[in-house]
Amino acid sequence: MQLTNFTDYALRALILLGALPDGELTSITHVSDTFGVSKNHMVKIINKLGQLGYVKTVRGKNGGIRLAKPAGTIVIGQVVRDLEPLQVVNCAPEFCHITPACRLKNHLAKAKEAFLAQLDECTIADMLADNDALLILLTRPLDETAP
């Protein structure tokens, strides 16, 4: 199963925001620059994360973005469910004529549920806990991250 780039970068953004000290704000530009994503794309991602209640945006001169709730409460499996269509294959009878007798769809559904169950076991905080190497990478000035 492959996540869309949208979900991939949303998870990265949440991890970066989770690494910030409590209450600290950062900018969408900083997040997009950190991961080499266009600012326009990151604006859409942050907007969606805000609509879903994962990110809080603060307007104004000293504004920015931060997590809307504690990193330990943001379950990665739920984020994926909220952002991904999660349809492994199209089993609509008008699309596939073997759907009524197909057994593959049940196995694919079980595989998808196992995938999500694994992601339900971890939170954004789990990605950061005892992970000094990640924290260093997220806080290093951008010009030092180039290979």
Score class of each variant (00 low, 15 high):
N5G: 12
L142S: 08
L119P: 08
I76S: 01
T99S: 15
D82V: 06
Q51R: 12
D130W: 08
P141D: 14
D130E: 09
T57S: 06
A101P: 00
A101W: 10
V89E: 12
F95W: 05
M1P: 07
G50I: 03
I98R: 09
L104I: 08
I46T: 05
K48D: 04
I136R: 12
N5P: 08
K112C: 07
G72H: 07
L142C: 01
K44G: 02
D132E: 12
K112W: 02
L116I: 14
L128Y: 09
T99M: 09
F35V: 01
K105C: 07
L52G: 03
L20M: 11
K110Y: 13
D130S: 13
K105Q: 13
Q78E: 15
K39N: 14
H30Y: 15
P141R: 14
A71W: 00
G53A: 13
R12K: 13
L11I: 11
C102S: 02
E24V: 07
M127Y: 00
I136A: 15
Y54K: 07
K61W: 04
L25P: 04
I98G: 06
G23K: 08
E94K: 12
Q51Y: 12
K105N: 01
S38G: 14
L49P: 00
A68W: 00
I136C: 11
I74D: 00
L135G: 12
C91H: 06
N90Y: 02
Y9V: 06
K105V: 07
K56V: 03
G18K: 00
L67V: 04
L3D: 13
I98H: 04
G77A: 10
A133C: 02
K44V: 10
A71I: 00
R59F: 11
L134N: 01
V89C: 08
N40V: 05
F95V: 14
L3Q: 11
L86T: 02
D8T: 07
I76K: 08
L83W: 14
R140M: 11
K39W: 06
